[in-house]
Design a protein around this nucleic acid. Structure first.
Length: 557
RNA sequence: GUCCCAGUAGCUCAGUGGAUUAGAGCGCUUCCCUGCGGAGGAAGAGGCCACAGGUUCGAGUCCUGUCUGGGAUACCA
């Protein structure tokens, strides 16, 4: 929150407290949607009227009088009006908004960020098993996850990015088999090619490299192929390392990085799965029936009880998932966000039920989930469904190559996660104002161009006199800048990067409008410097916001 | 059947601390280039916020029900 607003809020709380004990907690400002309602609005009068047994307008009048006498209000507020049923509309002096410009220039890339608060947060996302290239859905998840990490970091959290995958299960066995068959010269459609196999062309690539005895290195492992076609274990390990490396390339192209890769198989080898089952049994939350072990998940709001250990003695997938989340908790991450597709929706109740049943002190509602829907891709007016590389879907790398990292990230963050999104490839490469990425980036580049024309030292703008910034156009722009910190806080609290996207579009529009209304490089030096400070601050906020989304802010386009 | 999500302008969507006259982009109608990047700007038309009840001084927002669309519902992961 901006310092001026904070100062006024504190003063408001004190005034309310004097009026009615306990009322100080109701101190809050709203941002009116209509300019005629001032810069800040307060609805406390309507909330307190009943308690004070008087009509809200009367209460508002009392609050108004009290506020006008306070030093903070004398300094920053131009007028306070009572409107409608009892709204207290506050109009700030230009100096208050000018203060925002100063704060932006002063803080620079840190503007909007809160100081470190010691909170550790783990965000798990992408978590794709190494069975093929990353698809567009993973792209949405990568964009969301990375932006949410950045958002949480702006609020002072220490963020840890984790990628969870399985290198041992049924899917991986299928991968190894498919690769072996390809190595033997078979391909999809041939007699002897099984139903359950991976059909993408990339399997042939893996097989070729395996036979050539190559070495592959990914972020979390390295492996040299034995080249022995009968050596299924070597094939498996090689294929996993190969595909992990491919995913690394996709993620690198998208500029997403991880702090850790966590293996599902490690939960078994370390005994965490067995220990989890034991905890659940000791807690009396399980029972045997039909040759299987069940979890009483209905005790925790699930639709029905779930099988933990199947008739064949193996565990169902959510058991390691529960073990994994207990491990997250025990590693000290008391705040965890999982980004997943809506198709995993059903697992949430199960995992949370398991965590509660385990009785290890994990609070209800742990972990948090952000679910996203699928992405359709449209190119040339038609839906694109097939990628030669993957065999059956559009890959993230396809999309980045057709457009750009910036466009893909911005577009995938331009909707709420649970809104289905159609990615229009032609729009993403369009260089006009239909394309929101260019619209926002252009605003930044345009400012940089003005600053270049001026030719002065940007750092020198920090201390200039801003009194000349008193026009309506300038005030609208300052208001937009001042909104940034609260917008970030709200977006972080709701795991909602699209708030940032919408804000940036609005800020860019406000800037373009300002640019059209006032010439910046005027002859009057005082006016010129004040305006330069304003636009430099705007560039800074555009830059900071784009950085949260992982999108660049070019100074030339 | 049960559960989740959605239904807001012609189209695509914001709005999830209840609040003053419901917003944006695109499209449509006008208008602004002897200007620091027109990859821009200004103005206008366009909505019974799916429907019906309820809570409230006040509901697009909260509660209940109905309708419509999408998704999830394995001893698959």
């Amino acid at each position: 929150m901006l310092s001026v607003k904070q100062e006024l809020l504190t003063a408001l709380a004190a005034a309310l407290e004097r009026l009615a004990p306990g009322a100080g907690e109701k101190a809050a400002f709203e941002s009116p949607k209509v300019a005629a309602h001032g810069d800040l609005a307060c609805t406390a009068a309507m909330q307190l009227a009943k308690q004070l047994k008087q009509n809200p307008r009367q209460t508002a009048e009392q609050i108004r009088t009290a506020l006008l006498a306070l030093p903070a209000f004398e300094r920053w507020v131009a007028a306070i009006e009572i409107a409608g049923p009892g709204f207290i509309n506050i109009r700030l002096r230009p100096a208050a908004w000018q203060q925002a410009v100063r704060e932006v220039l002063d803080a620079g890339a840190d503007f909007g960020n809160r100081p470190a608060n010691g909170e550790k947060v783990l965000v798990e996302f992408v978590s794709a098993n190494p069975t093929g290239p990353l698809h567009v859905g993973h792209g949405r998840q990568a964009a969301l996850g990375d932006a949410i990490c950045n958002l949480l970091a702006t609020q002072g959290a220490q963020v840890y990015r984790e990628f969870y995958y399985n290198d041992a299960g049924v899917q991986i066995a299928t991968l190894a088999n498919s690769t072996q068959l390809r190595a033997r010269g078979l391909k999809p459609g041939d007699a002897g090619w099984p139903e359950a196999a991976y059909n993408g062309e990339y399997i042939q690539d893996i097989a070729n490299d395996f036979l050539a005895g190559k070495t592959v290195t990914s972020d979390d492992r390295a492996f040299t192929a034995s080249g022995d076609i009968e050596d299924l274990d070597s094939i498996r390990q090689f294929a996993v390392a190969y595909l992990r490396h491919e995913q690394d390339l996709d993620l690198k192209a998208f500029q997403v990085r991880f702090d850790n890769y966590y293996l599902e198989s490690s939960l078994y080898t370390s005994g965490k799965v067995a220990a989890t089952v034991q905890k659940l049994q000791d807690a009396g939350k399980t029972y045997e029936q039909d040759g299987a072990l069940w979890l009483k998940s209905t005790d925790y709001g699930d639709d029905k009880d779930r099988v933990m250990r199947k008739g064949d003695g193996t565990f169902t997938y959510f058991v390691p998932d529960v073990a994994y989340h207990i491990a997250k908790w025990e590693r000290g991450f008391h705040k965890v966000v999982n980004i997943q597709g809506t198709d995993h929706h059903g697992t949430i109740a199960r995992v949370r039920a398991g965590l509660q049943a385990a009785g290890v002190g994990i609070p209800e509602g742990y972990p948090d989930y952000v679910l996203h829907t699928m992405v359709r891709v449209v190119k040339g007016g038609e839906e694109v469904k097939i990628s030669k590389r993957a065999g059956s879907y559009v890959t993230l790398r396809d999309l980045i190559e057709w457009t750009s990292k910036d466009a893909v990230r911005f577009f995938l963050l331009s909707r709420k996660p649970d809104t289905e999104y159609t990615f229009d490839v032609d729009l993403a490469v369009a260089q006009n104002n239909d394309n929101p990425v260019y619209y926002v980036q252009y605003a930044h580049a345009r400012i940089c161009s003005v600053l270049r024309s001026w030719g002065g030292d940007r750092a020198a703008l920090v201390g200039v006199d801003l009194a000349a910034l008193d026009s309506p156009a300038a005030q609208t722009l300052m208001l937009a800048l001042a909104r940034y910190p609260d917008m970030l806080t709200h977006a972080a609290a709701g795991f909602a990067p699209h708030d940032v996207t919408f804000y940036l579009r609005d800020l860019a529009a406000t800037y373009h409008s300002y640019y059209d209304a006032e010439r910046i490089l005027v002859d009057d030096e005082a006016v010129r410097l004040a305006r330069l400070a304003l636009v430099a601050a705007t560039a800074q906020v555009l830059h900071n916001g784009l950085a949260v989304l992982g999108v660049s802010a070019p100074s030339r386009m």
